[in-house]
Amino acid sequence: MSTTARIKRELAIYGGILGIALVLAGLLAVGGAGYAYTNPPVEDLPPEEYDVQEFGVTVTHAATVTGETPLYAEGETIENKPVYFTNSTPELDLTVETDVPDDRTVGLTHRLVLVHRGTFNDDVVWEREETVIAEEASISDGTHETTASVDVPDVVERVNAYESAMAGVGSVSTELRLETTYAAPAQGGETYEGSLSGTVPFEVGNDAYWLDGDLSATTTESRTRQRGTRQLSPDMTTVYGGLGIGVVLILVGTGLIVWNVRGQDVHELEMEIVRSKYDEWISTGEFPADSDKQYIYITTLEDLVDVAIDTNKRVIYDPDLETYSVVDDDLIYYHAADPTQIDSWVGLSGSQ
């Protein structure tokens, strides 16, 4: 009971202010829901890639059988084999194949070289280059091929000479290197410019030779532009949640204001709290009316209970008069919400 009374007392004192605060909070929640509905989020679109173009280059190889061999027919052309034999196919044809956009004119340069290199403890001692292909071209149909031949016995002879000059110190290696540049117009008045390159070991011996891997390179060029923003749909969870919370807060706040306006007896609620706290010292009975007694008014019920404890008496509660009293011989200590009414009642009783 005391807990309920305490809550009622606090609401009686602060309920009006709390109710106004709840109504204002509810209005803010409803306003926020309305704002979320009328101002949905905006998403930044990712940049758009356009005018995407690919540039690629590949080196293929082939050889025509010119020497007698049981492996191939004379005059047969063999292509992209893992190994070639020097006696039957002494000349290797190297072809640079280019694949570029076919909707614009593309400028190309090719440089295909044999690189001989002498190393010692992984450090380069010397290097020599032999140009196989050096070309500039302008194409508009998207493809281009350039072919040149390598005399393999001549290469073997030079490699043997390099190895002899090294006198067994370090090692000699040969590789095939490709360097290609391109230039092509791009949308917006810009130009795509770049280079493609790659290397592959060229293993040569007195009896056979081979390219140890593929030699190719590709790249992609493109332009980007901003795409702006787009408006998303309102977050209806936020909208409905804000409306629901707002309506509840407004209703609760309005109820508190109405309850508070009707008026609540704070003194009566405080009496109820004290009555519940000191219930073991209070009994129900009649208020004594005797003109021979001296009546002393006590300001609070709590102080009246202290008097009862000090005098080892009980507090008597008269529900008809809503009055508490402690009788100590000729002294009557009492407390009432309206002490003037008790004073007049005692006077009447004493005169009868």
Results as ranks from 00 to 15, higher is better:
residue 119 T to F: 06
residue 74 E to Y: 09
residue 82 P to H: 00
residue 11 L to E: 07
residue 128 R to E: 15
residue 155 V to I: 12
residue 72 Y to Q: 01
residue 138 S to H: 10
residue 137 A to M: 07
residue 188 G to I: 08
residue 122 D to F: 03
residue 90 P to I: 06
residue 247 V to E: 09
residue 241 G to S: 13
residue 5 A to E: 14
residue 251 L to K: 12
residue 155 V to G: 03
residue 90 P to W: 02
residue 160 N to L: 03
residue 253 G to P: 04
residue 238 T to M: 09
residue 183 A to Q: 13
residue 143 T to D: 11
residue 11 L to V: 10
residue 285 G to K: 08
residue 56 G to E: 10
residue 329 D to Q: 10
residue 187 Q to W: 03
residue 87 N to V: 12
residue 231 Q to T: 15
residue 91 E to C: 06
residue 116 H to W: 11
residue 109 T to A: 04
residue 319 P to F: 01
residue 352 Q to L: 15
residue 20 I to V: 15
residue 130 E to F: 14
residue 109 T to Q: 02
residue 188 G to L: 00
residue 210 W to V: 00
residue 47 P to H: 10
residue 58 T to D: 11
residue 300 T to M: 03
residue 260 N to P: 11
residue 220 T to Y: 01
residue 51 D to V: 07
residue 163 E to A: 14
residue 22 L to W: 06
residue 11 L to K: 00
residue 147 T to W: 04
residue 290 D to I: 05
residue 164 S to P: 11
residue 320 D to V: 13
residue 198 G to R: 03
residue 188 G to N: 04
residue 11 L to A: 07
residue 69 T to C: 02
residue 295 Y to A: 02
residue 133 I to W: 08
residue 306 D to E: 15
residue 128 R to G: 07
residue 274 V to R: 05
residue 31 G to N: 05
residue 88 S to V: 01
residue 222 S to Y: 14
residue 206 N to D: 15
residue 300 T to I: 08
residue 244 G to Y: 09
residue 35 Y to I: 10
residue 216 S to R: 13
residue 5 A to N: 15
residue 138 S to A: 13
residue 248 V to E: 02
residue 232 L to V: 06
residue 263 G to Q: 02
residue 175 E to V: 05
residue 109 T to P: 02
residue 179 E to R: 13
residue 200 V to W: 11
residue 331 L to G: 05
residue 239 V to R: 02
residue 165 A to G: 14
residue 153 P to Q: 00
residue 300 T to K: 10
residue 89 T to P: 02
residue 113 V to D: 09
residue 114 L to A: 05
residue 190 E to G: 07
residue 302 E to I: 08
residue 351 S to Q: 12
residue 69 T to I: 07
